[in-house]
Simulated assay, not measured.
Amino acid sequence: MTAVLVAEDQVLVRAGLAALIRADPGLEVAGEAADGGEALLLAQAVRPDVVLMDVRMPGMSGIDATREIISALGRDAPRVLILTTFDLDEYVYDAVLAGASGFLLKDTPPERLLAAIHTLAGGDVLLVPAALRRLVESCCRPAVSVARFEGLTARETEVLTLVARMLSNREIADRLSVAEATVKTHLNRTMAKLGLSSRAQAVAFAYEHGLVRPGQTTRPGTQ
């Protein structure tokens, strides 16, 4: 059962999200927060698997709350899915830098939102395509910063490359003929070595340092 914390300042929206989560047999509501500060306290108290985090809230914003939650809980931090009405570049960048694992607009259909929660709970990253494309295009550099990869093994670099090409852990495991748990281990070690706190940051890092380039997104069965 995946425990989800809902952080949203609008009462009706928060209630609707909580009801949607409770209707999914694989999810449960771990708590409800009306602002970022409350979300931080609840995350520390109930240790949810996923946090649905609004951006614009009174007091501490959702971005700041995400940063504080990731910092406070470290390796035990939940996956944070940012929800916003606004498809603005700075929200995407700030969310990734804060350690969020996903970003969705509030007009996302309910079934896609539930699928996103399960995706994050499984350890994968999720960004709306347009936001991801702009993020990639804005941070991409022409040359590889080789020194940043010297501490990685060949397999860790390979896993990071496939993560950046937006393959899931299961797809990477199939591609490399290894167990899914092995992929998670390689990715966790890679993120620790590079000082990254989320899969989304790993994707941005790989593009920023030239490990992959826009247009190289690869799905199973393609080159």
Score class of each variant (00 low, 15 high):
Val92Gly: 02
Tyr93Arg: 12
Asp94Thr: 09
Ala95His: 04
Leu97Glu: 11
Ala98Met: 12
Ala100Asp: 08
Ala100Gln: 08
Ser101His: 08
Phe103Tyr: 15
Leu105Gly: 07
Leu105Ser: 04
Lys106Asp: 03
Lys106Phe: 02
Lys106Ala: 06
Pro109Gly: 05
Pro110Tyr: 01
Arg112Asn: 10
Leu113Asn: 09
Ala115Val: 00
Ile117Trp: 06
Thr119Gly: 03
Thr119Trp: 02
Ala121Asp: 15
Ala121Glu: 14
Ala121Lys: 11
Gly122Glu: 14
Asp124His: 14
Asp124Ser: 08
Val125Leu: 14
Leu126Asp: 13
Leu126Tyr: 13
Leu127Arg: 10
Val128Lys: 14
Pro129Ile: 05
Pro129Ser: 05
Ala130Glu: 14
Ala131Phe: 06
Leu132Gln: 15
Leu132Glu: 12
Arg134Leu: 13
Leu135Gln: 12
Leu135Gly: 14
Val136Ala: 02
Val136Tyr: 01
Glu137Pro: 06
Cys139His: 13
Cys139Phe: 15
Cys139Asp: 00
Cys140Ile: 11
Arg141Asn: 06
Arg141Gln: 14
Pro142Lys: 06
Ser145Cys: 02
Ser145Trp: 01
Val146Gln: 10
Ala147Ser: 10
Arg148Ile: 00
Phe149Asn: 02
Glu150Ala: 15
Thr153Tyr: 01
Thr153Cys: 06
Ala154Leu: 11
Arg155Trp: 00
Arg155Leu: 05
Glu156Cys: 00
Thr157Pro: 02
Glu158Gln: 13
Glu158Thr: 12
Val159Cys: 03
Val159Gly: 01
Leu160Tyr: 00
Leu162Tyr: 09
Leu162Ser: 01
Val163Arg: 08
Arg165Met: 10
Arg165Ala: 02
Arg165Ser: 01
Ser168Gly: 08
Asn169Tyr: 07
Arg170Leu: 09
Glu171Val: 04
Glu171Lys: 04
Ala173Thr: 06
Ala173Trp: 03
Arg175Ser: 10
Leu176Tyr: 06
Thr182Met: 10
Val183Asp: 07
Lys184Ala: 13
Thr185Cys: 05
Thr185Lys: 13
His186Arg: 10
Leu187Gly: 05
Asn188Tyr: 12
Arg189Ile: 00
Thr190Asp: 02
Thr190Val: 05
Met191Ile: 02
Met191Gly: 06
Lys193Ser: 12
Lys193Leu: 15
Leu194Gly: 08
Leu194Ser: 07
Leu194Phe: 09
Ser197Leu: 07
Ser198Gln: 08
Ser198Arg: 03
Ser198Gly: 07
Arg199Ile: 02
Gln201Glu: 13
Ala202His: 05
Val203Pro: 10
Ala204Glu: 13
Phe205Val: 08
Phe205Ile: 08
Ala206Arg: 01
Ala206Cys: 13
Ala206Asp: 04
Ala206Leu: 05
Tyr207Cys: 10
Tyr207Asp: 06
His209Gln: 07
His209Val: 03
Leu211His: 05
Val212Asn: 06
Arg213Asp: 09
Arg213Pro: 07
Arg213Cys: 13
Gly215Phe: 03
Gly215Arg: 08
Gly215Trp: 04
Gln216Leu: 09
Gln216Phe: 01
Thr217Asn: 09
Thr218Leu: 15
Arg219Pro: 04
Gly221Glu: 11
Thr222Trp: 11
Thr222Cys: 10
